[in-house]
Each structure stands twice: as C-alpha cells, then as structure tokens.
Write a protein that binds this DNA or RNA. Structure first.
Lengths: 165, 165
DNA sequence: TATTGTTATACTCTATAACTATA
DNA sequence: TATAGTTATAGAGTATAACAATA
C-alpha cells in the first residue's frame, strides 16, 4: 500500500491548490474532498450492510420525516433530482414493500408516498447505523468546533442558494 | 415555479435533520447539501461554457499542477478513482489533443501524461472562469470566516482519512 | 393551458475483474 | 510474483423529452 521511495506526489485532488490560489478555491477543493471521502464511506457501508443505496436511503429519510406522506414532486424537490428518477426509486421501494403510494383524494393525478410499517422498521435500523458512522467520522472535532462548522456551512449554503437562483 | 399556498415542506435534503439529532448528522447533511449545490453549478457551467465535465477538468488541473507529467496510477490516486476510469478520460482528452502520453524511459510499461500546448491554453481559460465562479459562490463570508472554515475542514478531512484507513 | 406523474432514452461516472506486457 | 496499464462489463445516478391523465 505504501510507496516509501515514491516521488513527492501529494495525496489527493486538493493538491491542485497552490499557495497563491484564492481562498475560495482552496475551500471548495477541501469541501469536495471531505464530502467525497465521507460519501464514499457511507455509500459502501449502506451497500454492504443493508444492500441499499444513498438515494434510496435519502428518500426514505424524507418520508420518515414526513409521516403525512409526500407527493412525487415534493420528493423531487427535496431530493434535488428530477421526477423520472423519483419514480424509479419509489417503484423499487414499493416492490420491496418499504413504501406505498396512497391516492390523494383532492387531486386524482397525484398521490402521497408513505413508509410502510416494514419500511419504518427497516429505516430505523439503517438510520441508527448511519448516525453511528457519521458521528465516528466527525469525532475529530470538539463540540464547539462542530457548532462553528455548522454555522459556517449555513452561511455557505445561504449564499450559494442566493447566487444560484 | 413558486407554490405560495403549499404545505410547509422545507427546502431540501437537509430538512431530514431534527432538533434532537446529533450534531454530526446535521453537519453531514449540511456539508452534503452545500457540496451538491456548488458541484451542480460548476458541472453545469463547465458543460455549457466549455463542453467538458468535472472529472475531465479535475484531471487537467492535476496535470497543470505537475508539469513534469503524471503516471496513470498517480492520476488514479490523486483523483481517487480506479485505473480504468483514468484510461477512459485520458483517451478522450488525448483524442482531442489536450493531453499526450509520453513514454517513460525507465519503465517500458509506463508513461507520463502531460498537457499539450493546446491543453494548457484550454485549461487556463477554464480555470480562470472556474475560479471566478467559486469565488462568487463563497463570497458570502469574510476572509476570517473563510480561514476558519478552511481550518475546520482540514480537521474533518484528517480525521476522516484516519477513520477510513 | 398547466401540472402530476410515467416512460424511454442516453450519457457520465464508477467499480470490478480479467487480461497483456513488463519488471 | 508483482506492477502498469487496458479492456470489458455492469450498475448507479442523473437529465431530457415526449407522453397520458387530470386540473
């Protein structure tokens, strides 16, 4: 695994940042690296331990948060993906009995998606493990630092949303 | 586009975090949302304005940082992807005359990948625009806050690398 | 006409594994 | 045997656009 005599090649993508680069660029590269490291870990554990994927987990998380159910287009907006993809994921989960489509009386085009009982049980198990992984991955910081990071990311998010829209 | 009378559905994936959730979970969801917002913006601008993709841009960025050239397995490590993918991207870029494979005299199995002159010109253009986008996207913070964020992300990264390996 | 959701399609990105040529 | 790189393949993830049903 190690290459002791290797040339001085840095470790990862962030190494494209130079000393003179703008701070924003360095932040972006580091943000991307952090996210990819963690996301890859979470994806692989979800696959190995629960045979599922991150988008499926995310969709179930949204449903768990909204026991009244969510419409397809609401899921699409929350998950930040287009409608066709939501259909595909809901189809899979429905086939496995984890979610169900319930007719919306007020609008015969639409329906609300719910977790089934089995879906709730399955999700609770996954969510517990998921939270443990994440806590472990962020355990290198004090509580105070975590709060600071949370606040700074809130600023990033708010500004990015403004710029984009 | 807007739904004024819509039910109180929050805006995005991060809305799965509840008040009682562990800080780490809230950080992770916010980190993921920030990264996705920015990454999507960068991807779409790279595609629209330069007809390229983020992995291709990243690969060229690594080459620009290493004028002496990089071997395929070095690129693979730096970009955090497996070898087959690097071959595919390098093939595309070589076909477009942006990079070239140069034989490595010391090892006849290997070669070094370089940017061509055209590749350097093309990358310089893209990198300039890319930096402007990123600076704009992170402009909501003071310089001091940017430094703090950079430091906190360094901690996240370091710890994550330790946990994973 | 606009909206909800589905279907069909295509493309990018990625991992895995089998393969070759060389070390 | 181990390493450098390629090839083939499969699957995840995503966007786009055309479509049917309903509002």
């Amino acid at each position: 695994m190690s290459t002791p005599a290797a040339p001085p090649i840095p470790l990862d993508r962030e190494s494209v940042a130079r000393a003179g680069d703008h701070r924003a660029l360095r932040i972006w590269l580091r943000l991307l690296t952090c996210t990819q490291l963690i996301e890859r870990q979470v994806r692989s554990r979800l696959r190995e331990q629960f045979g599922t994927t991150l988008p499926r987990f995310d969709l179930m998380a949204q449903l768990e948060r909204h026991p009244e159910g969510l419409k397809m287009n609401e899921l699409s907006r929350l998950l930040m993906v287009t409608g066709g993809n939501v259909t595909a994921i809901v189809d899979q989960l429905e086939k496995e009995g984890l979610v169900e489509r319930v007719d919306e009386p007020a609008d015969r085009r639409a329906f609300r998606i719910h977790l089934t009982r089995a879906g709730e049980r399955t999700f609770a198990e996954m969510a517990g493990a998921h939270e443990e992984w994440v806590v472990e991955l962020f355990a290198g910081m004090s509580r105070r630092e975590q709060d600071e990071l949370l606040g700074l990311l809130a600023k990033v998010k708010q500004h990015a949303v403004e710029v984009i829209s």
